[in-house]
């Protein structure tokens, strides 16, 4: 059952991701990205990360993608990538570099480091693993300083976004 779910979600995530980068219409791209994000939320559930799965749906598929769609519809883009690329061989080079990168990653994954890790995963996690209680306790004790830095980052981003999209001073 778990294996079946994994393959279902994996295929869904990959097809949606590929459709996202080949779509002409940016609205369709955004919708396909939402499908990928939702499948990833399902995979998080399979990996005992319940709280993160919920956050993924609410924050990512909810808030961030709504922001994307909002901007796409606000801009009303008529001509997109109509003129031929100024960089020659862009697509060929892109695919070539991508495939080389993927082969490198596979090489690392097959080098034995990962296989040594897999047996530990058979051990069942603690009952509260991945719950809001578990994450919150760590977040407000050992990760307190990064948490505050994240708050500052969000504040700076808020100001930056307002300043950048301001029409005239």
């Amino acid at each position: 059952m778990e294996t079946l779910l994994f393959w279902l979600l994996a295929v869904m995530a990959l097809t949606a991701a590929v459709s996202m980068i080949i779509q002409r219409n940016p609205v369709h791209s955004a919708l396909f990205l939402i499908i990928t994000l939702l499948s990833l939320a399902g995979l998080f559930l399979l990996l005992n990360a319940q709280f993160l799965a919920v956050i993924q749906v609410i924050v990512y598929a909810g808030a961030i993608m709504v922001l994307f769609l909002f901007v796409i519809m606000l801009l009303d883009i008529r001509r997109m990538e109509a003129a031929p690329s100024r960089v020659k061989w862009q697509k060929t080079l892109g695919i070539l570099l991508g495939v080389i990168f993927f082969l490198e990653t596979l090489l690392v994954l097959r080098s034995g480091v990962i296989r040594d890790l897999t047996p530990a995963a058979a051990a069942p996690p603690a009952p509260d693993f991945g719950t809001a209680v578990d994450l919150g306790r760590a977040l407000f004790t050992s990760y307190l300083f990064p948490l505050q830095l994240a708050a500052v980052l969000l504040f700076v981003a808020l100001i930056g976004a307002v300043v950048l999209s301001k029409r005239r001073w």
Partner: peptide, 19 residues
């Protein structure tokens, strides 16, 4: 890794800043 690869390809061969 495959999802990351698709992302890299999107950056490499699309020209729309949104994509």
């Amino acid at each position: 890794a495959m999802l990351f690869l698709i992302g890299v390809m999107g950056v490499l061969f699309r020209r729309s800043a949104l994509i």
